[in-house]
Design a binder for these strands. Structure first.
Length: 994
DNA sequence: CCTGCCCCATA
DNA sequence: GTATGGGGCAGGA
């Protein structure tokens, strides 16, 4: 590359400016605005991120550095100078200065920090300084350069910089491709550069809100300055001016003109934090630059840079933190299906490789391995954590986060319940060991009566959030959290919507579901070999537990900053594994997008009829009390019916009823099936006990518990969904568990009736019909079953007919019931033992059923064999959408453990695929409703059912929309050979809607 | 006060 | 036979 000589000083950080040098000062801020308006809009192809200004900026910078530029000289020193903040010393002079400047347009905003990344990628100095405008920095650098005998080119067309032009200093308008020198300034202002400020202080500037003298514009100002020499001379001689209006205006606004002079005059004495010597041009690192350009998807420039630097671009991956795959929140599909079928959406195939910040030649798995090694190598050192107590400190951390492009975030609050929690502090980590805690609402460790006030030395909460919000919402800064849904809910209540984001818990879940817990402490142990301070350590536990706002700030810093530190390290270890193990697609399409979906559902909650539950509770209690008397009478003595131990003694010890069996621990078994057996034989006591158990269960678990979960402000019940709790991909619900609300018995359904629609709305319940059986037909590839579903037949009756040779017409219900049990048994990984239990028949008979079933449906036996074989070989099974469910004990020497894992793995493919499908539907519902301008809100998910709250007059429009989304949810990733069927209904309560 | 066990509610 | 969460009891701290 003889055309692109390495600067003589390459590799050194600084070299004094000397005669013959050429200093280029790029006015970054004004360039960005200009490029935005002048260039055609450009968005990144794969996700629509606006990048027009970034593109223009990169092309300009490349030209300056490597190709012929208009000045015909290459810089020895170069800096991109940016405005740091809206407030500068000029606001002290004149508060209205730039006060009415509108916010930058929406699609320009995210480009600012991208341009900072660009400057870094070019290995060019980026200068910005608190309290000064870019123009002042440029003025100061220009002065120093000229003093040292160097030439200066200011890359800008901003008229405010024209005052700096003099021998040795020119401006360069790269977009118009022309230089601006003395002549051009005279053309614009009518005066030479040294008198530009005089003209500007008279003419003012409406855009920057420089007042000037009313009625005097550039032309008149130039004329006056031409005549009188400068502003002061003019003001001194104002009385002599002939035109009365002009005379009066000048006299009346003399002071205003002087203020304007101070506003427009650039400060050439800024105390520079980056000395001019450090602006020396450094060698471009081709790979680094290409990483950035690829992430931006600037293919033309990437090609040029590759050619000029000799870097093979195919060996460089896009910058992981900036690439579309990381920035998106999961709206797109994957590049290819797990089965290898090509899909219409292709963008993610390349992007998932981009997840790793690979250097050229390092494969994703090599990177993942290297990261895992490195994680254990650098120990966690809590002593380096910083407590952030001033806004200046905080701004520094925010800036660092923006520069790095990745930051781990954790919130500390007053409660584990995100619906009740108040923010107490925030911790950040920008690199391993580089972490801080920002206490915001810590109180004294008082007894609750005294020391109530917020401790001093904390940044006011609002100010801190205002400082954090732009970074937390900046699309160029990836936020990493552990169990983000919690922090998302907290921050949402403070008006912050984090984007883009990663969740280490979900990454771990995608990679290792079934291989252990995904909480931070176990993950830290597993991957970092480090034991973090536990929450209990800091807050105590049980009765002695204190809320986090009472934790001493230094202690809180150690705990909270460590959490952020550990989270970032976990992310570094786990994230590369996604690409290496081909799981990025599952994470991005099935996990990450669920965070906002579930957050919204939890935040919304569901309405319950408290009075109805209270009445039910009384009814149940009364009925149970009656049964209790009866039971004691039948038993011949009072005892605790709720104690299985005592009950077993009465039934089998005292009364000597038949069919006694023992549990694993040697106690009498008193489960429902045993009591039912006895009841059928005519014993009255077991029947009464079953009734008593049902009533007391319904009362304690539901009618009494549910009202206690009503939120004090919303008056609704807000469950919590766990995304990483099951091996199969199902969600789980807790506090309260709304996925096990009774439905089978009449008494139970009364509880369901207490889940009601808000006034003016209906509850709509939409559930998949026999989804797992349909997926069995699909996955096991059973043509007869597939066809039966396509024909809309009664699948259990058909199974019975095939197995027992009974015609479907007039089939006895008992025959159909048996076939139904077998179908369910298949889904559960059938065993003769289990089927026998379910049907109340002998093991041999059950075994014969299974044998006959497999004879009739050999494909299903093949499916089960293949699943077992695959799981034994790999330790996991996959769903249709590529989710992996791990069964590490599948090869256990213990036959019953092994058999259990085989059944679970057979079930997991079906249950897991169904879970994937409803997740896909859930992710699509909100955008579809919005597009249709419907106001329905998803409230609950119960594995194969979604419950919505729908304005009454929108029910008719909402039901088909939701049904359609659910039935088509597998598409386009997977084209099923069986139809999915969804039943939906609207009513005033959940029971009638279901 | 915590833990293991039993039992039971759902899909 | 699969997947969960939770309440009450009983035993050990």
């Amino acid at each position: 590359m003889s055309e692109t000589p390495t600067p003589p000083s390459a590799g050194t950080l600084q070299r004094p400016v000397a005669a013959g040098d050429h200093v280029f000062l790029v006015d970054g801020s004004s360039y960005i605005f200009r490029a935005y308006h002048a260039l055609p809009p450009l968005t990144r192809k794969s996700d629509g991120l606006p990048v027009g200004a970034v593109s223009g900026f990169c092309n300009m910078l490349w030209k300056l550095l490597k190709e012929a530029n208009e000045v015909g000289v290459r810089p020895t020193h170069l800096a991109v100078v940016l405005d740091h903040s809206a407030t500068t010393f000029r606001n002290a002079i004149y508060p209205l200065y730039k006060a009415q400047r509108p916010d930058p347009p929406e699609d320009l905003r995210p480009q600012f920090s991208l341009i900072r990344h660009a400057v870094q990628a070019f290995n060019v100095a980026c200068v910005e300084q608190e309290g000064f405008e870019a123009d002042d920095l440029i003025a100061t650098y220009a002065d120093q350069a000229v003093a040292a005998g160097a030439d200066v080119t200011i890359v800008s067309s901003d008229k405010d910089l024209m005052q700096l032009i003099r021998p040795g200093v020119v401006m360069l308008d790269t977009m118009k491709g022309k230089t601006i020198g003395r002549d051009e300034v005279i053309e614009k202002f009518g005066v030479p550069p040294e008198k530009v400020v005089d003209v500007q202080s008279l003419a003012g500037d409406s855009i920057d809100n420089v007042p000037g003298v009313p009625g005097i514009g550039i032309k008149t100002a130039a004329q006056l300055i031409e005549t009188y020499g400068d502003l002061e001379s003019l003001l001194a001689a104002a009385g002599e001016i002939k035109q009365p209006k002009r005379r009066e205006a000048l006299i009346a606004n003399a002071e205003q003109a002087r203020i304007s002079m101070r506003l427009v005059t650039l400060d050439t004495a800024v105390p520079l934090t980056v000395p001019i010597d450090q602006l020396v041009v450094r060698a471009v690192d081709g790979a680094r630059l290409i990483r950035f350009l690829k992430a931006m998807e600037f293919s033309t420039l990437t090609g040029r840079v590759a050619a000029a630097t000799g870097v093979e671009q195919s060996k460089v991956d896009p910058d992981f933190a900036l690439a579309a795959a990381s920035a998106r929140t999961g709206e797109a599909e994957a590049g290819s299906s797990p089965g290898g079928e090509p899909l219409p959406e292709g963008s993610l195939a390349a992007a998932s490789v981009a997840l790793a910040e690979t250097v050229a030649g390092l494969t994703p798995s090599a990177l993942a391995a290297a990261r895992a090694d490195a994680a254990r190598a650098s120990p966690v050192d809590r002593s380096t954590y910083e407590t952030v107590t001033s806004l200046e400190q905080l701004v520094g951390w925010v800036r660092r986060a923006s520069e790095r492009g990745v930051v781990a975030v954790d919130t500390e609050t007053t409660s584990l319940d995100p619906m009740q929690a108040e923010l107490v502090g925030v911790s950040l980590a920008v690199g391993p060991g580089e972490a801080c805690y920002i206490p915001l609402a810590h109180r004294g460790a008082g007894d609750g009566l005294f020391n109530e006030g917020i401790l001093e030395g904390q940044i006011p909460l609002r100010a801190a959030l205002d400082a954090l919000k732009p970074m937390l919402e900046d699309r160029a800064v990836l936020k990493v959290a552990q169990n983000l849904k919690y922090d998302w809910l907290i921050l949402a209540r403070y008006g912050i919507e984090i984007a883009p984001y990663d969740d280490t818990m979900l990454i771990s879940y995608v990679l290792d579901a079934g291989r252990g817990p995904h909480g931070m402490d176990p993950l830290s142990e597993k991957w970092l070999g480090h034991t973090p301070i536990t929450f209990d350590d800091v807050t105590g536990k049980g009765k002695a537990r204190i809320t986090f706002d009472r934790v001493a700030i230094d202690r809180a810093t150690a705990y909270a900053a460590e959490d952020a530190d550990v989270t970032l390290r976990l992310w570094q270890v786990l994230k590369p594994r996604l690409a290496a193990e081909g799981m990025a697609n599952v994470y991005e399409t099935l996990e990450r997008p669920m965070i906002p979906v579930l957050s919204a559902m939890e935040r919304r909650g569901i309405s319950i009829d408290r009075g109805m539950l209270s009445r039910l509770s009384g009814d149940f209690a009364q009925a149970a009390a009656g049964l209790e008397d009866e039971i004691h009478k039948l038993a011949g003595q009072p005892f605790n019916i709720g104690s299985p131990k005592q009950l077993g003694d009465i039934l089998f010890g005292v009364m000597g009823l038949p069919g006694a069996t023992k549990t694993a621990t040697g106690a009498w078994a008193t489960g429902a099936s045993i009591l039912e057996e006895l009841a059928e034989q005519g014993y009255e006591l077991p029947q009464r006990i079953l009734e008593w158990r049902q009533l007391t269960k319904l009362r304690s678990t539901y009618t009494d518990a549910l009202p206690s979960y009503q939120h004090p402000e919303t008056d609704r019940v807000h469950t919590s969904y766990a995304l990483a709790a099951t091996t199969t991909g199902r969600l789980s619900s807790s506090e309260p568990n709304l996925q096990n609300i009774p439905v089978r018995t009449e008494a139970g359904r009364k509880i369901r009736r207490a889940f009601v629609a808000a006034p003016g709305t209906k509850l709509v319940s939409a559930d998949y019909s026999q989804i797992e059986l349909r997926l069995l037909a699909e996955i096991a590839d059973i043509p007869a079953l597939r066809q039966a579903f396509r024909d809309g037949l009664d699948i259990h009756a058909l199974t019975a007919s095939e197995m027992f040779g009974v015609p479907v017409e007039g089939m006895p219900s008992e025959v159909r019931r048996r076939a139904k049990a077998i179908n369910f048994g298949i889904i559960y990984g059938i065993s003769a033992f289990g089927l026998a239990n379910q049907l109340g028949i002998g093991r041999e008979e059950a075994g014969a059923y299974i044998k006959r079933y497999f004879e009739r449906f050999p494909g299903i036996r093949a499916y089960m064999d293949e699943t077992r074989r695959f799981c034994r070989e790999h330790g996991f099974v996959t769903t249709l959408f590529g989710r992996r469910c791990h069964y590490p004990e599948i090869n256990s020497k213990n036959p019953s453990v092994r058999a259990f894992n085989e059944r679970a793995s057979i079930n997991a493919r079906l249950q897991g695929t169904a879970a994937d499908i409803i997740r896909r539907a859930m992710i699509r519902v909100a955008p579809a409703l919005e597009a249709a301008r419907l106001n329905a809100r998803m409230l609950l998910q119960v594995h194969d059912e979604l419950i919505f709250e729908v304005p009454e007059d929108e029910v008719d429009a909402t039901v088909p929309l939701v049904t359609q989304i659910m039935e088509k949810a597998p598409e386009p990733a997977v084209a099923l050979h069986v139809p999915l069927k969804v039943d939906a209904r609207a009513a005033d309560n959940w029971d009638e809607a279901h």
